[in-house]
Design a protein around this nucleic acid. Sequence first.
DNA 1: ACAGTTACCAAACAAGTGTTCGGAGACTTA
DNA 2: TAAGTCTCCGAACACTTGTTTGGTAACTGT
Lengths: 202, 202
Amino acid sequence: MSKKAGAPRTRNRWGEGERLRGEILAAASRLLSGLDGEDGLTIRGVARAADIAPASIYQHFTDRAALVAGLTDYEFARLHTAMMAARDRVDTGDAAGRVRAMLHASCRFAMDNPGHYRLMTAGGPPRTGQTGPLAEVIDLLVDGFAHCEADGIALRVSARRAAVIAFVGAHGRVVLFQNSAKHADMDSVTSFVDEFLSLVFA
Amino acid sequence: MSKKAGAPRTRNRWGEGERLRGEILAAASRLLSGLDGEDGLTIRGVARAADIAPASIYQHFTDRAALVAGLTDYEFARLHTAMMAARDRVDTGDAAGRVRAMLHASCRFAMDNPGHYRLMTAGGPPRTGQTGPLAEVIDLLVDGFAHCEADGIALRVSARRAAVIAFVGAHGRVVLFQNSAKHADMDSVTSFVDEFLSLVFA
DNA sequence: ACAGTTACCAAACAAGTGTTCGGAGACTTA
DNA sequence: TAAGTCTCCGAACACTTGTTTGGTAACTGT
């Protein structure tokens, strides 16, 4: 943990420059899990967590803002893969079940990583438009609902609308009511999501 | 604006100690509207906005945390009154319209005050439980939906469930998709809310 | 062996932070 | 008039922050 003690840190070799970038993001992500929240997300804090010098970060990120932006993408990628993984664990024939699995996975992610989630939704105008990482996540749900319709499951609104409603509802629930207990409330969230889905399906 | 120039600030008189507290909160609220977001919410920044000395804040708030907590309550009170005002502008006979008005008002509040809204939802465990300012806002909607049921308007879920779903959905929409344009997108948000409500009503 | 490139870091800089302390001015009471 | 109280402020303390500069060690190609 300490920089003075510990092993003399295997320095990155020639041509491995990109490696530290990943380590920095991982360390920042780890840091965001701490109790400090996003306040602890400082250059020096990240450097401390990654066990490197603060100056080293500037070789991979021009700014603190660039670091935060990079971390946001990093977290959205994590969410994206978590949702796809959950979807792929459900049989292809069960289109509704696949959507359900994706929503549950996204809720689990939000509950397990409240700090990360706040960071993701904090992104300014340029990141939350029609394109961007959030849109990719939504598109995942749109595809899911579209498959439902293709399989003859009627929706009360369009697939895109349903995707936005479901995602927004599921995560609004998590963000607004992030109580003390984290895993204990997971059941109430999933049941909330299920009730939500029952409203969307005809 | 400046402390050096400007009028020599009418100092609070004897016995008017509580007045400055309100001025501080108002200044902090104003500050939160700026582009800095919640980062600009510093003791010194608030003092500058209120045109007082930083030290003066400590007579009304023990901590920076206490200031933030006080501001959170202040903003929730603003949201609460805005929703009630919107509701009371609709005829008592139109129960569904009154709910709709409250939701629209809350969305407008969230869109007009994204910074404030982030602060409100950032509150830790002790503030977002079964009681607290958020619960009071939700209860407002529960009452609204309950009146709908009393007036023979069927719901597809319980009044409490409907309130949480509607509030969470409306605000999730705002928080997740707070694009560049603020007022321009108000129409799309209200239509989203309306579609949302059509799902809740049987 | 030599220069060249890459990857990292120690140290410092200027700026801003929360907070405390000893007053100073305005008012009330006597 | 003099003491007492309330309300506010100037100045300082001890920190932390983002960022830059000038290196040094490891490795490459020649």
